[in-house]
Amino acid sequence: MNVIETSSGNSHFVEINPVEDGDYKTLSKSRFFFDWKKEKAYEVYKLQLSRTREIIGLISLEKIPEEWRVHIRLLTLSKGNIGREKQFDRIAGNLIAYAARIAVKEYAEYACVSLRPKSQIAQHYIDKYNMKLTGMTLSIEVPEILDLINQYDHEK
């Protein structure tokens, strides 16, 4: 997995790991938008640069086995990675692809990753990640979910 440094175009290796108890004190609301301590009951993962260990993205997930679905509850990039001044590209894509891997590993051809963004930004997820809209919910399923995994596994 990798992210792209926007200023140079250089690729940087990243890792996604579960957030540990000790991490929460570093995940401030000012840098990561939400109060992540409230998500402790769910599966929370951090995306870190392999070289520096800096956390640059977070995602919290809820597995819903009876629906063969993994629901993205919260997702954010660190503050320095939004808008025109962002340092790295592909952070959110890697996190969504990680949720997709969990779903396919558990549910194979029934796998589904869902989220429900505000209506103004739904189109962004439809265009960028090939998601489908049902009511208020966006979802990605087979075959698009497999393409997403492959895209983020292989692109350098």
């Binding site: 939400f34 993205i72 509850r73 919260l74 997702l75 954010t76 990039l77 990675n81 808008g83």
Partner: peptide
């Protein structure tokens, strides 16, 4: 603006019911 919203789309996505 719409541009700002798209730029922020991946910053602070709250998808909780």
């Amino acid at each position: 603006t719409n541009k700002d919203l798209i730029a922020d789309a991946e910053y602070g996505l709250d998808s909780r019911y």
